[in-house]
């Protein structure tokens, strides 16, 4: 198991269909849809790594992963 400081929200823009679930249901409002229509992190410090975005992403395009992961 990785500790919290080794983890971050990761996004695969190729799989993101821009539905907005992650943005709308993020409890700390740290995500946004960018001008390409894809999810993007706008406030990394504000992210509490709760995983709501990952759970509600229908496209497996956003998740909590290790900072060092590919």
């Amino acid at each position: 198991m990785k500790s919290k400081d080794q983890l971050e929200v990761k996004i695969n823009p190729d799989w993101c269909k821009g539905c907005g679930n992650c943005v709308s249901f993020c409890p700390t409002n740290v995500l946004a849809i960018d001008h390409h229509g894809k999810s993007t992190m706008v406030n990394r410090e504000g992210c509490i790594l709760c995983g709501m975005c990952e759970k509600l992403c229908p496209d497996f395009a956003i998740w909590i992963g290790g900072k060092e992961d590919e």
């Binding site: 269909k17 497996f60 992963g65």
Partner: peptide, 26 residues
């Protein structure tokens, strides 16, 4: 993608055919 998806999904067949916002993926 995430470890769980890598482990249990056939990555080569993704992304899936479901529409934007469809809850099937969830």
């Amino acid at each position: 993608t995430s470890e769980i998806v890598q482990k249990y999904f056939r990555i080569e067949n993704l992304p899936h055919i479901w529409c934007p916002g469809c809850s099937n993926g969830v």
